[in-house]
Design a binder for these strands. Structure first.
Length: 438
DNA sequence: AACCTCACG
DNA sequence: ACGTACGTGAGGTTC
C-alpha cells in the first residue's frame, strides 16, 4: 500500500472496510471475546508501527553490495572452471544435472515431487566432501540470497520522504495467529552467519536515539511447560537453569555440570522438535544421527517429561473431538484433516494440533504486550517509537534521554501480560544498530 | 504461476 | 508401504 494511503487510513481512524475484513476473519477463529481487547487495538498499533518505519544505512548496504557482487563473480567463474563450461548456477535443474548425471556424486540422489533432483542445502551438505564444487555452489547461493533479497532490495524500498522503509504487517494470514510482514518482510532479516550480521548492522535508530530490542526468552517452551503442567519442565524453568542444559542433564541422568556441548545441542534440537510434533526420522535427520539413537533420545525425553507426552496426546484427542484446538486466550485453529484416512495428511493435522496452541498462545501474548506498551508510551508521553515485531521480539527507536524509562515500560509490559506457571522473561538490549541491541 | 530454495522465529 | 518438524515471504528459474 502506498504510504500516503496508509496515512489516509490512519487519519480516517481505521477505515470501515478494513475493520469489516478483520472482524469477519477473526470472529471465525474464536476471537469473539478478544476481538475488541486484542485485534482491534492492535490494528491501530500496527498502523502506527508501519508509519514509524525503520531507518536503514543504505550507504553501508551499497558498499557491501559492491564487495559481495565482485566476490560472487569470482565464485561463479571458479564453478564454471571446475566443470569446464558455463551454466546458470542459480538454476536448481542445471545444478542437479551437473552434480548427479555428469559428476555422479550420488547414485541414489533424492528427487523432488516433480522428478527433479533435489539440490537443497541439507542434501548438498551431505555430499560436500565428494567434490570441491559443492562448497562453492553453497557459497554462491548464500551470497546471491543476501544480495538479491536484502542488500540490493532494501534500499529500493526506502521512502523518499521519510527516508525509512515501511513494512506492511498482516494480521489475518497466519493460521496460528502470528503476524506476517511484507514489502519488505522485516521478520526474516539475516542474523545467523557473519555476512548476515552485517545486514543487521544497517538497521539503525533515528538521530539522537538508540536501537532497543527486547525478546521473550524461550516463550514457546515456557508455554509448553505451562500447558502440560509437567513438573520436571516447570522445575527446569523455575530453577533458572538454561533449559537445554537442564533437559540434557535429565535425559542423560547426569549432573548439570557434566553436560557436554554435544548433549546440550541434542537436547536443544529435541526441545524444539517436541513443539513441532517431531518424529524419530525427523530428529535423526536434523541431528544426522542413526534412527535408533534418535528413538532413544525421544524415549528419554518423554521419560523425563511424561506430562508433555500426555499433553501432546490430549491435543490430538481434543482436535478429533472438537474439530479444532485453541490457545490460552481462545483463538481457534480448525483442523479438518484430523480424522483423515490418509496417514500422511492426518499426521500433518496432528502436528498442527500440538503446535498451534503453543505458537498461537505466544502470538496472543506478544500482541497484548504490544497494545499495552503503545498505551503506556502515549500515557507517559514518551517519544519512543515501536518499529518492528519479529514473533517473540519487539524493536524500538528510543531517544537517548528516555532509555531507562523505555526499557522499564517494554520489559514490564512484556513480562506481565499474564501469569503462567513459569516466569515470563523478556531480555532487553540497546545499541547503535539492531545487531548491537540484540 | 508453479516450483525450488532459503531467510527468519 | 509411505513419508517424515511448526509458521511465514521473496527471489530466481522455468513453463
Amino acid at each position: 500500500m502506498d504510504l500516503l494511503c496508509k496515512y489516509a487510513a490512519e487519519d480516517a481512524d481505521i477505515t470501515f472496510q478494513l475493520k469489516q475484513i478483520l472482524e469477519g476473519e477473526l470472529k471465525e477463529n474464536g476471537l469473539e471475546n478478544l476481538f475488541y481487547e486484542i485485534e482491534m487495538p492492535l490494528l491501530r498499533v500496527l498502523s502506527i508501527m508501519e508509519r514509524n518505519g525503520v531507518r536503514i544505512d543504505s550507504e553501508a548496504l551499497r558498499q557491501s553490495s559492491e564487495i559481495l557482487t565482485a566476490e560472487l563473480l569470482v565464485i561463479e567463474k571458479e564453478i564454471h572452471d571446475l566443470v569446464g563450461f558455463s551454466f546458470n548456477v542459480s538454476s536448481p535443474a542445471q545444478v542437479g544435472e551437473i552434480l548427479f548425471d555428469r559428476l555422479k556424486l550420488d547414485d541414489k540422489a533424492k528427487k523432488t515431487k516433480t522428478g527433479q533432483y533435489s539440490t537443497s542445502e541439507d542434501i548438498l551438505e551431505k555430499i560436500r566432501s565428494k567434490h570441491p564444487i559443492i562448497g562453492k555452489i553453497l557459497d554462491f547461493r548464500g551470497l546471491k540470497k543476501l544480495l538479491s533479497t536484502y542488500i540490493d532490495a532494501l534500499p529500493l524500498l526506502i521512502n523518499q520522504r521519510t527516508g525509512k522503509v515501511h513494512t506492511s504487517f498482516n494480521q489475518t494470514v497466519a493460521a496460528t495467529g502470528r503476524l506476517s510482514s511484507t514489502n519488505p518482510n522485516l521478520q526474516n532479516i539475516p542474523i545467523r552467519d557473519a555476512q548476515g550480521k552485517e545486514i543487521r548492522k544497517a538497521f539503525i535508530p533515528d538521530d539522537g536515539c538508540v536501537f532497543l530490542s527486547a525478546d521473550y526468552s524461550q516463550i514457546e517452551l515456557r508455554i509448553m511447560a505451562h500447558l502440560s503442567g509437567d513438573k520436571n519442565m516447570l522445575d527446569a524453568f523455575n530453577s533458572g537453569l538454561d533449559i537445554h542444559t537442564a533437559t540434557a542433564a535429565k535425559i542423560y541422568k547426569i549432573p548439570v555440570e557434566e553436560v557436554t556441548s554435544d548433549m546440550r545441542r541434542k537436547a536443544k534440537t529435541a526441545n524444539f522438535g517436541i513443539i513441532y510434533g517431531i518424529s524419530t526420522f525427523g530428529l535423526s535427520e536434523r541431528l544426522t544421527i542413526p534412527r535408533a539413537e534418535a528413538k532413544e533420545l525421544i524415549d528419554g525425553y518423554f521419560a523425563t517429561y511424561p506430562d508433555v507426552k500426555r499433553y501432546m496426546d490430549e491435543c490430538i484427542q481434543r482436535a478429533k473431538e472438537n474439530g479444532y484446538v485453541e490457545t490460552i486466550f481462545g483463538r481457534k485453529r480448525f483442523l479438518s484433516d484430523i480424522n483423515s484416512q490418509n496417514s500422511v495428511v492426518r499426521g500433518f493435522a496432528e502436528r498442527n494440533a500440538i503446535n498451534a496452541p503453543i505458537q498461537g498462545s505466544a502470538a496472543d501474548i506478544i500482541k497484548i504486550a504490544m497494545v499495552n506498551i503503545q498505551k503506556r508510551l502515549f500515557a507517559e508521553n514518551l517519544q519512543t517509537k515501536m518499529t518492528m515485531q519479529v514473533h517473540d521480539e519487539l524493536n524500538f527507536t528510543v531517544p537517548e534521554v528516555e532509555i531507562e524509562q523505555a526499557r522499564k515500560v517494554v520489559v514490564e509490559e512484556m513480562e506481565n501480560v499474564l501469569k503462567l506457571k513459569v516466569p515470563l522473561i523478556a531480555d532487553c538490549g540497546v545499541g547503535k544498530n539492531w545487531l548491537e541491541a540484540h
